[in-house]
Amino acid sequence: MRIKFEVNGTKVELDVEPRVSLADCLRDTLRLTGTHLGCEHGVCGACTVIVDGAAVRACLMLAVQAHGEHIVTVEGLSNDDALSPLQASFRKHHALQCGFCTPGMITTAHALLTEEPDADAERVREVLSGNICRCTGYIPIIKAVLEARAHYAGEDAPP
């Protein structure tokens, strides 16, 4: 099927089999390999991307369902120069070890803080309970997200 969508601000148009998941389409066709597949059945959260502002599991969505949507992946939350405030906070707090769940944590936390820059610790824990990390025990991840909140409030907030 011919589909069009926008990913990280770039319009793309491609042919895709209906059965291809959005995650596989991003990874294999568009080579946006920052979106990771940890379970492919909607539990681990590593494949989280942002579709029209909402964090979703890219393994539970077909690429054809993304037709006409605006998609942001972890690559779209990054630039080549400096780490974003959220990324820098993760680094500062050692909120990653193997790094495999990290893109899903970043996209989920970004979507959350964009919507709710005042999310408290309990809310952050609740939201991130949909993303499994096996290395860190989560404590530093929660700290990193809480500290990044300031950058999402007020006029400095990222788009």
């Binding site: 979106t35 972890v74 690559e75 990054s78």
Partner: peptide, 8 residues
């Protein structure tokens, strides 16, 4: 960390 955090 930077490459992991950027999805790179």
């Amino acid at each position: 960390d930077p490459r992991f955090l950027r999805g790179a």
